[in-house]
Amino acid sequence: MTPTLTIASALAGLNIALLAALLVVWWRNYRAFGTPLTLGLVAFALVLAVENVVAIGFFLSSGMLYAADASAQTAVLAMRALQFVALAFLTYVTMR
């Protein structure tokens, strides 16, 4: 695995950790209030967490589509970094 994909994998792992924290808060809120919005947030966190787990699987597999293309790897890293920044803001605001 290239250093770029290693960093992308680490960011995906961090994204999963942030989503787990959000999921705990949102699930508690759903159990307390039962609103469709909180259930939607729970579903959002679950789907995005599954997407990150699948991404890590692709990063670790040898037959990935973008294995030899440096620009594709950079784009994947940038998307993981942007997702991390967005989730960090969302987690900060949610935990306040």
Score class of each variant (00 low, 15 high):
1 M>E: 03
2 T>R: 14
3 P>K: 10
4 T>R: 06
4 T>F: 02
6 T>D: 10
7 I>N: 05
7 I>T: 08
7 I>F: 09
9 S>W: 00
9 S>M: 08
10 A>D: 05
10 A>H: 09
10 A>K: 11
11 L>W: 01
13 G>N: 04
13 G>Q: 03
15 N>G: 07
15 N>K: 06
15 N>T: 07
16 I>M: 06
17 A>Q: 06
17 A>P: 12
17 A>E: 04
18 L>Y: 03
19 L>A: 01
20 A>I: 07
20 A>C: 11
20 A>M: 11
20 A>Y: 08
22 L>P: 00
22 L>N: 00
23 L>S: 04
24 V>S: 13
24 V>C: 13
25 V>E: 04
28 R>T: 13
28 R>Y: 12
28 R>W: 10
29 N>Y: 10
31 R>Y: 06
31 R>L: 15
32 A>M: 14
32 A>L: 15
32 A>W: 07
35 T>N: 12
35 T>H: 08
35 T>V: 12
36 P>E: 14
37 L>W: 15
37 L>E: 14
37 L>N: 14
38 T>D: 14
38 T>Q: 08
39 L>H: 03
40 G>Q: 11
41 L>N: 00
43 A>F: 10
43 A>N: 11
44 F>V: 06
44 F>W: 09
44 F>Y: 12
44 F>E: 03
45 A>M: 04
46 L>S: 09
46 L>D: 07
47 V>E: 12
48 L>P: 02
48 L>F: 12
48 L>M: 14
49 A>W: 02
50 V>G: 08
50 V>I: 14
50 V>A: 14
50 V>P: 03
51 E>S: 11
52 N>P: 08
52 N>T: 04
52 N>W: 01
53 V>H: 10
53 V>P: 01
53 V>S: 10
54 V>E: 09
54 V>T: 11
56 I>W: 03
57 G>L: 07
59 F>G: 00
59 F>E: 00
60 L>M: 14
61 S>Y: 03
61 S>F: 03
62 S>Y: 04
64 M>E: 09
64 M>S: 13
64 M>Y: 06
65 L>Q: 13
65 L>D: 13
66 Y>Q: 04
66 Y>V: 05
66 Y>N: 03
68 A>Y: 11
68 A>W: 09
69 D>H: 09
70 A>F: 07
70 A>G: 09
71 S>T: 10
72 A>M: 07
72 A>N: 03
73 Q>V: 02
73 Q>M: 08
74 T>K: 13
74 T>L: 13
76 V>S: 00
77 L>A: 05
78 A>C: 04
78 A>T: 05
79 M>E: 14
79 M>A: 15
79 M>C: 13
80 R>L: 05
81 A>Q: 02
82 L>T: 11
82 L>V: 12
82 L>R: 13
83 Q>N: 09
83 Q>S: 06
83 Q>M: 08
83 Q>K: 13
84 F>L: 05
84 F>D: 00
85 V>T: 12
85 V>S: 09
85 V>K: 06
86 A>Q: 08
86 A>P: 02
86 A>C: 11
87 L>R: 01
87 L>M: 08
88 A>T: 15
89 F>P: 05
89 F>W: 13
91 T>Y: 05
91 T>I: 08
91 T>R: 07
91 T>N: 06
91 T>A: 12
92 Y>Q: 15
92 Y>V: 15
94 T>E: 04
94 T>I: 12
95 M>D: 07
